[in-house]
Computed example of a mutant assay.
Amino acid sequence: MPTTVSKDFRLTESHIRQEDVVQLVTPAGVRVANPAFDPWVEDVGPDQLASFYEDMVLVRRIDTEATALQRQGELGLWPPLLGQEAAQIGSARALRADDFAFTSYREHAVAWCRGVALPDLLRMWRGTSASGWNPYDVGVATPAIIIGAQTLHATGYALGCQKDGVNAVAIAYFGDGATSEGDVNEAMVFAASFQAPVIFFCENNQWAISEPVRLQARNHIADRAPGFGIPSLRVDGNDVLAVHAATRVALQRARSGEGPTFIEAVTYRMGPHTTSDDPTRYRDPDELATWQGRDPIARLGLLLQSLDVDVDALDRAVTAKADETARALRAGCLALTAPEPLSVFDNVYTGAHSWLDRQRSQYAAYLAQFDGEA
């Protein structure tokens, strides 16, 4: 956190409504001055920007490889994050080790930043595990498939932090479609009522599967939160620096006892909703082309060039690392083994349970019918 920013900073209307979307780097890679948000990233120099660039290239390569694995029958499903790298990297890299992230099923970059092992990213999608990793080891919950449920989990965790007297913060990631779910609205009611140290981070990628955001939100999604008494920010989600600044603001508010913040990161899902989706059936190719011109990785590369960073050398090093990461991901995926069938009954209850024991016995008898079959 930049030390020159006072802890008395307040997120007021003058800070967040000077422009429609907070942007610090244009799609052409030009740094834009912003007196309200520049102090929050004044410590972010070329080296850290280069590390953001590396992060985004690596997670895009992970995403590409996982998509290929699904197409080759090695994964049952995969939800691509293509185009949303800056929103996830910019926010996740602002978190402390003792903060806790609650994600949907698309935040692979958040999991990467929190240190989730490569094979663990794929366990659930390969069907070898009901989750993937121990959340307490890495400070991020396993993906929530039920739309918006993670906002309730994050709010509850934040309330626990508040009761324990620690200044750790919870952050919930969700898409624009989730804001129409009751869980998200109920979570904001609780968070506002008790001033919970939680960040609601909406990745507005413009599409809730095949439904465009304009059908469910006549106004900006960020405009909903103030109705619950939660200050909101609307930030360019393809601008990693602006996302980083906005997340730092929200974290400082939460740690200072000022309660929740809602961030709408305006981005775009350049790929399908999942690998079972065909976006060409509902999306105008001209729209995709427009957003490809706002690519978060290309944008940061242009900014680095303007800062006299040798981007060609950086690209060579990062591409080599990305290829090695993809090889490790593939090898880790293929090495995952199917669980024993009866393990489905493990960890359902903390102790013995006669009802579950009966089911286990019946299922074991069913499986025994197939002993010896090829």
Rank of each mutant, 00 (worst) to 15 (best):
S180H: 12
S343V: 06
D308T: 10
P119E: 05
I16A: 13
G83C: 11
A94E: 05
S343C: 06
R218N: 10
V213S: 00
P285D: 06
G182Y: 00
P226N: 08
G372K: 07
F201R: 10
E324A: 14
E340N: 13
P341Q: 02
A36Y: 07
E203W: 14
K7E: 10
A317N: 11
P231T: 08
G127F: 11
F370H: 11
P279N: 09
T337E: 05
G301N: 09
V44Q: 02
F194I: 11
R96V: 13
A245S: 00
I146Y: 05
S354L: 13
F370Y: 13
L82R: 14
R93C: 07
G90Y: 02
W355S: 11
V110T: 08
A154Q: 13
H353N: 07
N219R: 11
L367K: 10
Q305T: 10
S6P: 11
V116F: 03
L367A: 06
T275S: 14
D176F: 07
R255V: 00
G177M: 15
T319E: 15
Q216M: 09
A192Q: 03
A141G: 06
D295R: 08
R234N: 06
T290Q: 14
A317S: 04
A66S: 02
G332I: 12
R327Q: 10
G76C: 12
G257H: 12
E13H: 15
R294G: 02
L11T: 10
V235N: 04
I147L: 09
S276P: 07
E203T: 15
E85G: 04
C202D: 10
A50G: 07
G160A: 15
P143V: 13
D239I: 05
V140R: 03
D98C: 04
T274W: 02
I263Q: 05
N134D: 12
A328Q: 12
A352Q: 13
L334R: 11
R126W: 08
Q359F: 12
E107A: 05
L24S: 05
Q292W: 02
P260E: 04
L58I: 15
Y136M: 13
Y349V: 09
L307A: 06
A298Y: 08
T179W: 12
E74P: 09
L251Y: 02
L307H: 10
P341I: 03
E65Q: 03
H15K: 08
Q72P: 10
G156E: 13
N34I: 07
T337H: 05
P197A: 04
L241E: 03
V110D: 07
